[in-house]
Nucleic acid binder design. Structure first.
Length: 475
RNA sequence: GGCGACAUAGCCAAGUGGUAAGGCCGAGGACUGCAAAUCCUUUAUCCCCAGUUCGACUCUGGGUGUCGCCUCCA
């Protein structure tokens, strides 16, 4: 907890030293998804990123409170529901389930709370009413709009001012609004739309307001981090700031650090639902394990664009396989006994690597650099494994435990190599074949040994011989 | 048009005013019955021009290129 953590704050456009609102605690609000279709890989990036950030904070000793919303009342959800002849709730529930299924595969830990718009209506109405009362919002025939001109610092986060936005921009002109940039806090219900009773009649919340209300409800007037994709900077986060600070009555309240991740692109162009150039996480998971996808995302700094392709995923898979191999070796060695003093240097360099890993994470969550230190430990482990297992060097259990602790700390933050494989019937059969081959090799019956190896290979099983036995894995 | 980001080896990707992490792929070698895995060795002067500096990939200015936000969007 004493480690200095630096964070790039979108608000100041520079790295700042993180100083928690309350010592030892971190409050995080990340904009979640609008559940109207299956999450694509671009949607997944912020959640994987924040999953690592929160794991890091936890490892540094902070008590983390992580809130992530579902915007389950929305035009697109309603439209989808009407097209399918089901309720908006059916649609939202379906895609919230899909979201969780996919995030579980990516090994993303659950948030502390997943508030939904539909469950936060009273608080939203209260906030909208408060904004009307304070003169920041006005009603128009059942709609309530936020008056951007009433908020002096509007545009601060995204670095724009109202004049710039007006010039050249062809915003839909609604003559009733005081300013074309005014946005809806509350929308009156049209036929066929879900609605809630309010002081302005039947209606539902506009976009933006839910995040202001939910963060206030679950994290308080002021909290540490607010995150999401860069495309949310404007207008979403800009509007949240306007709402929250107007409501709370001070420009020092609301989020203290704004953290925005870059986009996932495809052939260099932003992946987006509206461009229809996206891959859903689910379809990628048909070809690659979740941790490969996760690793792929984390090998690039979160603020950089990340180009998606099958080739990159394959690269990530190959790299992760090396770490997995080291983990296997780590496990195999950890099961051994031995009191020789052969791993002291190794332990020291592993702990040094862990320190470097934490330093990298503390510098604006540089997962790409951090992971390189994990590779360094992996290499050392593999070397030591060869010495002990294949060259008969005496084992040093005490110091090796330190290596393991360092490696596990790092892997846990990255969130990889955590699954433990359960033995299936097929596994047992393969074990038996491997045993038979081992016997054949002892008898120098190379023909039979190779026959078994080839037949397994045809099934996608690769064998690895060593001085002390044979291991196998699925390719 | 307004605002902003980025440009590093075959591919991906960190990075610091003082002579460029890591991963993937490729090549050579060790090990192996042969393989596989592993290990060792090996692959860049950082888009272009000008400037600041003892010294810049890293700072400043200009140029070129790519991308993003300004409308729903992670």
């Amino acid at each position: 907890m004493t480690r200095e953590i630096k964070v790039y704050n979108t608000m100041s456009r520079q790295k700042e030293v993180f100083s928690p609102l309350e010592p030892g605690k971190v409050g995080i609000y990340v904009c979640g998804v609008t559940p109207y279709n299956d999450p694509h890989i671009g949607n997944a990036r912020p959640f994987v990123t924040w999953d690592v950030i929160r794991r890091f904070f936890a490892k540094c000793g902070y008590a983390v409170r992580y809130i992530q919303n579902f915007t389950d009342v929305d035009d697109k959800i309603i439209r989808t529901a009407n097209e399918r002849g089901v309720t908006w709730k059916d649609v939202a529930d379906q895609y919230i389930d899909a979201y969780f299924r996919v995030m579980d595969e990516l090994n993303v830990r659950r948030a502390d709370v997943y508030p939904r718009v539909s469950e936060t209506i009273p608080e939203i109405i209260e906030m909208v009413q408060g904004l009307v009362d304070k003169g920041f919002a006005y009603e128009l025939e059942g709609d309530v709009y936020y008056s951007v001109e009433s908020f002096a610092t509007y545009g601060k986060l995204s670095g724009r001012n109202l004049d710039d936005m007006m010039a050249g921009a062809r915003v839909e002109v609604d003559e009733r609004k005081k300013n074309p940039m005014d946005f809806a806090l509350w929308k009156s219900a049209k036929p066929g739309e879900p609605y809630w009773e309010s002081p302005w009649g039947k209606g539902r919340p506009g976009w933006h307001i839910e995040c202001s209300t939910m963060s206030l409800k679950y994290l308080g007037k002021t909290f540490d981090f607010h995150g999401g994709g860069s495309d949310l900077i404007f207008p979403h986060h800009e509007n949240e700031i306007a709402q929250s600070q107007a409501y709370c009555g001070g420009t020092d309240c609301f989020a203290r650090y704004w953290v925005h991740n870059g986009f996932i692109t495809i052939h260099g162009d932003k992946m987006s639902k509206s461009e229809n150039n996206f891959f859903t996480v689910a379809e990628i998971l048909e070809k690659y394990p979740g941790e490969v996808v996760r690793f792929f995302i984390l090998q690039t700094h979160y603020r950089s664009p990340l180009d998606f392709s099958d080739e990159r995923l394959k690269d990530a898979q190959a790299g992760l396989a090396r770490l997995a191999k080291a983990k296997e070796n780590l496990d195999a060695l950890s099961a051994k006994n031995g009191d020789a003093d052969t791993a002291a240097v190794l332990a020291e360099s592993a702990e040094k690597a862990r320190e470097a890993f934490f330093d990298a994470m503390a510098d604006d969550f540089n997962t790409a650099l951090a992971i390189s230190h994990l590779f360094a430990v992996a290499k050392d482990v593999n070397v030591y494994y060869n010495e002990v297992v294949n060259h008969g060097q005496a084992f040093d259990a005490k110091n090796f435990a330190r290596v393991r602790a360092a490696f596990d700390d790092m892997a846990e933050i990255v969130g990889i190599l955590e699954k433990s494989a359960a033995k299936s019937d097929e596994d047992a059969e393969i074990d038996a074949l491997v045993e038979e081959r081992l016997a054949a090799r002892k008898a120098k019956n190379w023909a039979r040994a190779d026959e078994i190896r080839d037949s397994l290979k045809a099934r996608g099983i690769v064998l690895e011989d060593s001085a002390t036995g044979t291991r196998w894995k699925r390719a």
